[in-house]
Design a protein around this nucleic acid. Structure first.
Length: 746
DNA sequence: CCTCCGCCTGTTTTT
DNA sequence: CAGGCGGAGG
């Protein structure tokens, strides 16, 4: 226990052992952030400055929270259960479950994930007869969520035009619908918890007194509401500032806030994150201690130098320069492909080479800006027989068969949950079509009741299909009432007809497996989080929260080790021995849509910074002169980010064209870097890649989409600047840059 | 009620 | 190019 601090560098040591004052830790990529955070908690407890009960630590992802708990229990012989360590959403859920009455919610309120929220909005628009052309559900959802994330209720929202006035009205209707159904969306979870504490003084006092230390991970990703929530809990909210207000002074019922973040890794502005919270925090809390963790334990020097040089182009940074004593390492390899296919082939060739050299497959990552780019890479990996795993995409608890099964569970727990009702009232089909559903909606709307209640009172008449459904739900409710959770789930899958339905489906095999997996998930939930069930209103409610709040990434990906494919966003927080970053083209990375946004380019640059700093030993950057996008060929210029990297750190390993072409030399801009070329043959110095530019050479007949047939008469330049002179006969003689013009050999 | 066809629209994503 | 969604037809 006493060696808690062993092995910490001076800055880490200083951060961990800070006196009980607000602190901001600027933790660079790979600087041991999580370690500092957890050791700080352990140190506070060990030194009697806090007890486990009085610590609140908040993260953004379940993974980070879990990691913190694991490390903490390895450091201290304490029971981490019951400690308030979790995600913003998880902790708010906990708060609302404990005080559901005060928060104005039913005990078994359900959490809507984004898919549920979208269907709830669609249903609302339909009920109100609103034209969804004029009010696209997705847009409305964004409108509502961004208001909630700013802490703005429908009643307080500003409207400056008719359209917005209407949207505000719909926001209000949506709030009413959720309230009636007893459901809460993600943003609502935070806003409700905030309002609960803000309005209920005794409760606020209670928690302010209870938590003496608040620790925040990834502070740069907090939005306005999350920051306000933190201020409230820390006793810094409106009306609770100490009378003297001295900087850094702590009044009674105030907590010490220890915030860890990296402004250079702020990549979620598009969903409301405010980097400005870091500056505000420093000012509003009178932070006396700002500590920079700049020693990087992850990457070799060249990689770090590149990252530093790149991010230096951003303005208004808090300032930080990463360094390492690991040595310069290899140069960064830059590859320029003729097409996206060339690029993918190169990457897969290199990957195989790395594997042959003994690098573990799961230590190799293929990163890209947008998901659409994974396709070519996947195709090449597949043909080469290299096992790979794509991150992102559909998660376990988001699969339709899982959502269906859970909807039955939800409906049994809370009959007012119209989202759940609408999802399964006719699934598996039981003859309840659009007509009957519309009648139900109508009746429910008129009686201001839930669909379920409307259905129950309507179906009294005859042996209708709707009546059958109601009886099914009643039957399920009574039959499963006494069963433990996993058996409940199993019984529901059987009796609802879901199993039968998927048995009869051609492609139903995987879905059936997933349904069995759901039963397993219920078993392991009870085993791992069984202690949560009491405070959250029983097994079912706790399991349903778990399903909504933890999408269940861990369910997939077991088995053999594989190459990791993911977006740069998804790679944040991870590290790999070798990283390939592809698609470094203007319009793709930086993405063209970013240009429209305020400081969009800077956010893209931070994204690039995140990508670079994922690599430990080897980093590849690549781009393609032409790329298939949306079904047509795009001519691409290299990303400006490539120009922002010091040439001396780079080694160009672009295929050299046939010797007959003049531009076949001089790619290695960095002199000593050039000597270290790719380990796989075929690229680099040897002139063997004659067809790398599609077999172009002087005298070659080519075709151009606008100028028609022609013949290459001269060539000059290299890399991005490679140009050829083509005689198009009647269309004239033209110089064409290979980076832009598409020439097909004939 | 289900299925098929054609249109349309394509960032990033955790909770 | 592709997948998702909505409308029309069986």
């Amino acid at each position: 226990m006493s060696d808690l601090l062993a092995g910490l560098n001076p800055d880490q040591f200083a951060a961990v052992t800070l006196p009980s004052q607000h602190a901001l830790i600027l933790a660079g990529a790979g600087s041991g952030k999580t370690r500092v955070l957890t050791t700080r908690i352990a140190w506070l407890i060990q030194h009697g400055q806090a007890n486990p009960h009085s610590v609140l630590a908040v993260t953004f992802t379940n993974k980070a929270a879990k990691e913190m708990l694991t490390r903490l229990s390895a450091m201290l012989p304490i029971n981490t259960r019951g400690m308030w360590i979790g995600t913003f959403h998880g902790l708010c859920n906990r708060l609302l479950r404990a005080h559901y009455r005060e928060a104005g919610l039913p005990q078994l309120f359900q959490i809507l994930d984004s898919g549920d929220q979208l269907s709830a909005i669609k249903r609302l628009l339909k009920n109100l007869g609103v034209d969804d052309e004029k009010f696209p559900p997705r847009e409305l959802m964004h409108f509502i969520n961004s208001h909630k994330e700013q802490g703005i209720r429908a009643g307080e929202a500003e409207a400056w035009d008719d359209w917005t006035r209407r949207r505000v009205a719909l926001y209000a209707e949506y709030e009413a619908q959720c309230q009636r159904e007893g459901v809460v969306d993600f943003a609502e979870l935070l806003l409700r918890a905030y309002e609960l504490l803000n309005r209920n003084e005794p409760l606020r006092r209670h928690y302010q007194t209870r938590f003496s230390h608040i620790l925040v991970d990834e502070f740069q990703d907090t939005n306005k509401l999350q920051y306000a929530w933190l201020k409230l809990l820390a006793g810094r909210g409106p009306g609770v500032l100490p009378a003297d207000g001295a900087p850094g002074a702590l009044g009674a019922g105030q907590a010490v806030v220890f915030a860890v973040g990296d402004d250079d890794q702020s990549i979620y502005a598009f969903r409301g994150a405010e980097v400005g919270n870091m500056r505000d925090f420093e000012r509003e809390f009178g932070v006396l201690n700002v500590i920079r963790l700049e020693q990087n334990y992850r990457s070799h020097g060249n990689i770090l130098d590149a990252a530093n040089a790149l991010i230096a182009h951003n303005r208004g940074r808090l300032g930080k320069n990463l360094w390492t004593d690991a040595g310069a390492g290899e140069p960064i390899r830059v590859f320029e492909g003729f097409t996206d296919l060339d690029e993918a082939r190169f990457i897969v060739d290199e990957v195989r080479e790395l594997i042959r050299d003994g690098i573990e497959r799961d230590q190799i990552a293929l990163l890209y800006r947008s998901n659409a780019q994974s396709r070519v890479l996947e195709h090449q990996l597949f043909s080469a027989g290299v096992p790979y795993r794509v991150h992102g995409g559909l998660r376990f608890f988001e699969r339709q068969e899982i959502k269906h099964a859970l909807a039955y569970l939800r409906l049994i727990a809370n009959a007012d949950d119209d989202t759940a009702f609408a999802r399964v009232v006719n699934f598996p089909t039981r003859g309840i079509g659009t007509r009957s559903l519309e009648a139900l909606q109508e009746a429910a709307h008129r009686a201001n009741s839930s669909l379920y209640n409307a259905a129950a009172s309507l179906s009294g008449k005859a042996g209708t299909a709707v009546g059958g459904f109601i009886r099914l739900i009643e039957k399920l409710r009574s039959e499963t009432a006494a069963l433990p959770l996993p058996e409940k789930v199993e019984h529901i899958i059987d009796v609802s007809g879901l199993r039968q339905h998927y048995l009869g489906e051609k492609e139903g095999g995987e879905r059936l497996e997933n349904l069995s997996e759901l039963i397993n998930a219920a078993v392991s939930f009870l085993r791992e989080d069984g202690d949560r069930t009491a405070e959250e209103g029983g097994e079912v409610a706790a399991f349903l929260s778990h399903a909504s709040l933890e999408a269940g990434e861990h369910q997939a990906g077991a088995g053999e080790t594989a190459i990791q494919l993911m977006t740069v966003h998804a790679a944040k927080g991870l590290e790999f021995d070798a990283v390939f970053l592809s698609g470094l083209e203007q319009g793709l990375f930086p993405h063209e849509n970013a240009a429209q946004e305020r400081d969009g380019l800077e956010e893209e640059r931070r994204l690039m910074y995140v990508a670079i700093t994922r690599a430990r030993k080897r980093l590849y950057l690549s781009w393609a002169q032409t790329r298939m996008l949306h079904g047509q060929t795009r001519y691409c210029a290299p990303s400006i980010f490539l120009d922002e990297l010091p040439v001396a750190l780079l080694s160009r390993i672009t295929p050299v064209a046939a010797p007959t072409l003049a531009y076949g030399r001089g790619y290695g801009a960095g002199s000593q870097a050039t000597s270290q070329t790719s380990s796989s043959g075929g690229y680099g110095q040897a002139p063997m890649a004659a067809d790398a530019y599609g077999g172009l050479r002087i005298g070659q007949n080519v075709e151009h989409s606008r100028f028609g047939q022609g013949v290459i008469v001269a060539a000059e330049g290299g890399g991005n600047d490679a140009r050829v002179q083509v005689n198009f006969g009647s269309a004239g003689v033209k110089w064409l840059a290979l980076a832009y013009a598409k020439l097909t050999p004939r």
